[in-house]
Amino acid sequence: MNGHTHHTDDRRELQMARSMCCHCQSEMAGEYFCDRCVKVQPVSKDLDYFSCFGLPRRLAIDTQVLEAKFYELSRAFHPDFYQNKSDAEQSISLGNSAMLNTAYRTLRDPIQRAEYLLDLEAGAVKDIRTSPPADLFEEILELQETLDEFRESDRSSQHAATLRAKLHTDRTNLEERQRDMEARLQQLFGRWDALQDRGEATEQARAERTLILKDMRDILSNRTYVKNIVNDLVATIA
């Protein structure tokens, strides 16, 4: 995530504070360019990636629309088109392009998109899972032992072959588990979008929102944990 996760719950206020052209100091209404002097403006640090592309905070995104908007903004910001401009404009173009590229990369991938939305809605959480999720605890401890045993074994022995076969089975099981988690995530994504679409401000809606975000965070961190285990496993038996 490269630390591009600064945000504030009251970003509207911050955006207002910036509503002055940084070149001609006029009050401007334009989104990325000053209406008066037509010069590029730095994209506010507090503008979230969804707003940057003019998209609502939903987890189902039309990637064609996202791509088209990315290309459009690239044409607006890319340093190639600022070669003859002032140093200040060149520097803004560079910063905006870098931000735009990060935003596109984040929203293009459904998992990164969900992680980013979680950061926005519930704050960045640095706790990276270091122990297996409860429902996989036994299974993963056993797998770690098998992996250690395999690493120390003589690769040409019968014992190593048995261990390898077992690791293959474990891999299949874990991959099945990953697919399962992804399916559950998709469900949660759908529920989130539906809740947002309804836009209710009831106590019940707020409770559901909290629940969806919590479940999403749990599954995402479990998913990352299992993914790392599988990568390690694949690298070991390769």
């Binding site: 630390g3 590229n101 596109y104």
Partner: peptide, 16 residues
């Protein structure tokens, strides 16, 4: 790793 390979440039990363 701060900026992964095959990241579109210009690209930036911040670290505290």
């Amino acid at each position: 790793s701060l900026i992964r390979r095959n990241t579109t440039i210009p690209a930036s990363a911040k670290e505290m």
